[in-house]
């Protein structure tokens, strides 16, 4: 079963300089109980994508075409009220900045009770659920923690509280937008392990957005690589990282200093800059920076299936 299926999604922002085509023909699926990672550098459209899913696009943005099917409903054509009813119980989110996600002047316990407003449980029962959830995210002394305020917790603990709140209603899909980026390396790995455990326990799917290739490799079953608003490659993490079939994926992996086990003074880079999305190039989006560019790249490349489930949008990709 597929929890989330995005098909040929196009998102356009109206700007002073003309229409900005932020997402072009984005398609991918999040199957049940799987962790799907979205990786890409700044400006690749990761945030636009999740805002489109959550129905939180800015005023000047609109879904020009395509569909976002979530548990059988098309979010692209749902009205605000209906999306709001899904956000929380079925579709929840953890953001990058844990402090921004928690209200600083309300105790953690009250915030956790407040988000259970749809439930008919008595106050004490709601609190019991909160405590239970905090234990699951390994907050020591959970009962006491309810009385405390966000500033009394460390960054890692705040992020774990935010995760607890997001998973409290046992959603079908958790969208995690760079949840570990603001954390230190040692905390990052414990948070990832925690997410993995919770996902298995609750049985939800996770859409995990990150720019950190190592984190994606460690956590995700599938990966979607985005560049300038397009999905250039997607497939199982092992396939994509083991046999990158789009030049951008290959170059991005090369750039990660973690891949250079030998010490080097000259680190690989990707010269050039992102294209201006108001004047999106006609053909392949990566052509201007690609060192394997050919004449055919002036046309939009097809999505080529390398092996079943592993797709690359490049003329060079070959079916095996």
């Amino acid at each position: 079963m597929t929890v989330l299926a995005i098909e040929n999604l196009n998102v356009v922002f109206a700007t002073e300089g003309g229409d900005l085509h932020a997402l072009r023909d984005v398609s991918f699926k999040v199957p049940e109980q799987r962790i799907v990672g979205i990786v890409g550098e700044s400006g690749c459209g990761k945030s636009t994508l999740i805002n489109a899913i959550l129905g939180l696009l800015a005023e000047n943005g609109r879904i020009a075409s395509g569909s976002i099917s979530f548990e059988g409903e098309d979010l692209a054509h749902l009205d605000d009220k209906a999306i709001q009813d899904l956000r929380g119980p079925r579709l929840s989110t953890v953001f990058q900045d844990p402090m921004g996600a928690l209200n600083p002047v309300i105790s953690v316990g009250r915030q956790m009770r407040n988000i259970q407003y749809r439930s008919d449980l008595a106050r004490a029962e709601k609190d019991a659920r909160s405590i239970d959830m905090l234990r699951q995210v390994r907050i020591p002394d959970a009962a006491q923690a309810l009385k405390r305020y966000p500033h009394e917790f460390s960054g890692g603990m705040k992020q774990r509280i935010a995760i607890a709140m997001a998973l409290m209603m046992e959603p079908a899909l958790l969208i995690a937008d760079e949840p570990t980026t603001a954390l230190d390396a040692t905390l990052e790995v414990t948070t990832i392990e925690l997410l993995k455990d919770l996902q298995a326990e609750i049985g939800c799917s996770v859409l995990f957005i990150s720019h950190h290739l190592g984190v994606i490799a460690e956590l995700c079953d599938d990966v979607v690589v985005m560049y300038a608003g397009e999905v250039v490659e997607r497939g199982s993490t092992r396939q994509v990282f083991g046999n990158p079939s789009h030049p951008y994926t290959a170059r991005l992996l090369d750039c990660d200093p973690a891949r250079q086990s030998e010490r080097t003074r000259q680190l690989p880079t990707i010269p050039g800059e992102l294209p201006d999305l108001r004047r999106r190039p006609e053909g392949c989006i990566f052509a201007a920076r690609c060192d394997r560019r050919m004449d055919v790249c002036a046309a939009i490349p097809p999505d080529i299936e390398v092996v079943p489930g592993h797709v690359a949008r490049c003329f060079l990709a070959e079916s095996q």
Binding site: A185, T186, E188, V189, T190, I192, E193, H212, L213, G214, V215, I216, A217, E218, T237, R238, F241, G242, L253, D256, A258, R259
Partner: peptide, 17 residues
């Protein structure tokens, strides 16, 4: 050891603190 490497096949003998 807390530096995840972009290789899903790398065995991870992690020291968690």
């Amino acid at each position: 050891s807390a530096n995840p490497e972009p290789d899903p096949d790398k065995a991870q003998d992690r020291i968690t603190l």
